[in-house]
Nucleic acid binder design. Structure first.
Length: 227
DNA sequence: TTTCGCCATCCTATATCGAC
DNA sequence: GTCGATATAGGATGGCGAAA
């Protein structure tokens, strides 16, 4: 297990290496839902292209999405990778849920008790537990240390949390181990989310990680084991 | 040239648990 | 006993690079 209170210092080193991370252009809770559903398994750049096209050509509100033709939505989802037709259906489903359950104002979910807000967000397609936590974190509603797979891998390799049989169990393990390491504020944990993700994408890759160029390898349990 | 494994991460189905 | 919440396992998806 890595020593306590060390993670914040490692994040400083990651920021020196990767720079200050830019947040996604999606701002509201509904936009963040659209951000997850407009593209699948594509680069951040390609996802941003698809999202900005959706905003420009269709709109960013549930009503605008619902009013759009399938052709107009397809023009956007083809920019976001595989199964564009399927994602058209997902976008309209997102709009339907937002309109029928939240009166078109998904931001109202953020004021609810956190467990209830998480459940509400998980009703949207493409939003599981990590996705729901990320939206609540990014909107400043709850300071979850939300992680995606790259960030999760970095934390586990550093020694926070243990690799479990399921993704969800590994997620909870790493989150529980690392949360006490960071200030319980949304800005601090948004920063951690972005830096851990970036590091996992470009350096601490799933296979063949670039340990030789990693600025925090001396603190890494995985590196010590593999070396 | 063909085959195979990896990538990212949510979804679905099923099992288990606790409250009432 | 029923219901809802939570946990778990396995499936799914196209592109790409490495190996045969």
């Amino acid at each position: 297990m890595a020593p306590r209170k060390k993670l914040a210092r490692l994040l400083d080193r990651l920021e020196q290496r990767h720079g200050v991370q830019r947040p996604p252009p999606a701002k509201s809770a509904f936009e963040l839902v659209l951000w997850e559903n407009v593209a699948y398994l594509v680069s951040d750049e390609q996802r941003e292209t698809a999202f900005l096209a959706l905003v420009k050509q269709v709109g960013r509100t549930p009503a605008a999405i619902r009013a759009a033709s399938r052709e107009a939505l397809l023009d956007v989802t083809v920019l976001g990778g595989m199964h564009p037709e399927r994602r058209v259906s997902k976008l309209t489903e997102c709009a339907d849920i937002a309109l029928e359950h939240h009166g078109g104002k998904l931001e109202s979910v953020l004021a609810r008790p956190t467990p209830e807000a998480r459940r509400a967000l998980k009703r949207f397609p493409g939003i599981g537990e990590p996705g729901a936590q990320k939206i609540l974190l990014f909107r400043g509603a709850h300071p979850y240390l939300a992680l995606e797979s790259n960030g999760l891998r970095v934390l586990v390799r550093l020694g926070w949390g243990e690799e479990a049989k399921s993704y969800a169990a590994t997620y909870r393990s790493a989150q529980a181990a690392a949360e006490p390491e960071l200030a319980a504020t949304c800005p601090a944990r948004v920063r951690a989310h972005h830096l851990l993700r970036k590091h996992g994408q470009v350096t601490c890759k799933h296979s063949a990680p670039h340990c030789d160029e990693c600025p925090i390898s001396t603190a890494c349990a995985y590196y010590a084991r593999e070396d």
